[in-house]
Each structure stands twice: as C-alpha cells, then as structure tokens.
C-alpha cells in the first residue's frame, strides 16, 4: 500500500479545481503565496547556514561520533538507534538545527536507510516545541506555563519512540 504517491496529485487537483469553481484568481493567489514562501526561506537562511556549518564541524571533528559512541551503551539495549540521539535532542529546541542534523543524517547514512527513514518520520511528526511555547505565551505575557512543558515534551518523546518503532515494524 503506497498512499504517498497519491497524496500530492490528489491535493493539487482538488485545491485548484475548487478555487476555479469559486472563480478565484488562482494564478495571482499562487504568486502571492509563493512570494510569502520565498520570504520565509530568506528569513530562515542565516540560521540554516549557522547551524549547518556547526553540525558539519561537529561531524567532521569526530566529536559527533564520540558522543554517539558514549551514549550507545544506554540507548542500544532499549532498541533506540544512538545515531538518532542528536536529532531527538535538537528537534524540540531548534527547527533549523534539526533540519541541519537531518541533512547530515541523509548525507551520512542515506535517506532510504533505516536511520534515514526513522529520522524522516521523527522530523515530520514532531515540532519545535520550545519555540512554539515561547511565541504563544510570550504574545500574551504569560510566564507561568504550568503543565505545558512536561506534557508537550512527553508528546514529543512519544512521537520519537513511535518513529523508531513504526519504521522498524512497517519498514515505512
């Protein structure tokens, strides 16, 4: 069962047809959306450059492998690939950082390897938790966030463990 190949064509067809039926200026709307997209990428570019450089240094200095080697006695027995540890730590903190690590994982192991697929699922099913918490509460001046952080991190943790489990079981 390969749902993936049907999603994009179906979504494209449905969206454009609906908009045409409603007589919307589809081309102009597309241009204005794409313009927002490119400005979002421009805004993200400096932090991506900063973090990709840092992660490349971490990888080629050998320190990344040293850290992975150091924690693998703890993670390996429970079935969590130690190679995914850096991504799982950085994911809730920094979106650009996680993207840099994901890119590094694809380069080192391949996108279709087990590590690559589990990392993809991990990236797709979790969010930059701390950033969202800071933006939303910051906007209304709330400083006591009560049970937000533990609940959100427990959700992220579930997503990460499930990413490894589901990739292992379904080969996805």
């Amino acid at each position: 069962m390969n749902v993936g190949i049907y999603v994009i064509p179906f979504v494209l067809f449905a969206i454009i047809l609906t908009a045409l039926i409603k007589r919307l200026p589809v081309f102009e709307l597309f241009l204005s959306g794409a313009r927002q997209g490119i400005s979002a990428i421009f805004k993200m570019a400096p932090s991506i450059i900063a973090l990709v450089c840092a992660v490349t240094m971490l990888r080629s200095s050998g320190l990344l492998d040293a850290i992975i080697g150091l924690i693998s006695p703890i993670l390996e027995p429970i079935g969590f690939p130690p190679e995914l540890f850096p991504l799982s730590v950085l994911r809730p903190i920094s979106g650009s950082g996680a993207l840099a690590v994901l890119n590094d994982i694809y380069k080192s192991f391949g996108a279709d390897s087990f590590i690559g697929r589990a990392a993809s699922v991990m990236m797709g099913s979790t969010e930059t938790t701390f950033y969202a918490i800071a933006v939303y509460y910051g906007s209304v001046g709330i400083s006591k966030t009560r049970h937000t952080v533990p609940c959100a991190l427990a959700a992220d943790f579930t997503g990460m463990v499930m990413a490894v489990l589901s990739t292992r079981l379904m080969g996805g």
């Binding site: 390969n2 993936g4 190949i5 996108a111 690559g116 990413a163």
Partner: peptide, 28 residues
C-alpha cells in the same frame, strides 16, 4: 529534502508520520 538526498520514495514515510503524530497528540 528526502527527494534531494536521492530517496527513491520521498513520500513513503507519510503513513508512519501520521501514526506517530497521532500517538504524540493523544499522549499530549
């Protein structure tokens, strides 16, 4: 990013992503 990294099936992860997001959301 997967397709740029030479994946033969970039969207092949989508069902797993749905499952994992749903599990994370349910726990949250």
């Amino acid at each position: 990013l997967r397709s740029e990294s030479g994946s033969s099936d970039p969207m092949g992860i989508i069902v797993n992503v749905w499952l994992c997001s749903a599990a994370a959301l349910a726990v949250g």
